[in-house]
Amino acid sequence: MAIKIDPNCYYTKSHEWVRVEGDEAWAGLTDYAQDLLSDIVYVELPGEGDSFKQGEVFATVESVKAASDIYMPLSGEVLEVNEQLANAPELINKDPYGEGWLIKFTPSDLSELGNLMGPDAYEKFIKEEEEKGGH
């Protein structure tokens, strides 16, 4: 099964994606991350209006294997969280870049995109991760 990568996103080394559209941005978990975690059973999301810096923990997801912290791809203030995940955490497994989004937020400093990977770099990065065997 090939890992999907959205060409319109930027990526972190901890496998979050961010998609910027105008003044707003969406963030979520990558297809690679959901595949590693396996079936997600619970998601803990931040409150609307909460602010996080790039790299800070903003959410936690729990799968049958483990609970994992999710890190903010860009600094910003949360506008909206994906309420649907409360009853349907499997949306992250089914559609990680679409219906499985975690938060919508206002990024405060777009120059931070420079710290992230583009789709090609991310594809290369996960290939290396696979070869290393660890993560």
Binding site: L36, A66, G133, G134, H135
Partner: peptide
């Protein structure tokens, strides 16, 4: 024990 430690897939 399964899936722990997390540093080993």
């Amino acid at each position: 024990t399964n899936y722990f430690p997390l540093i080993v897939p």
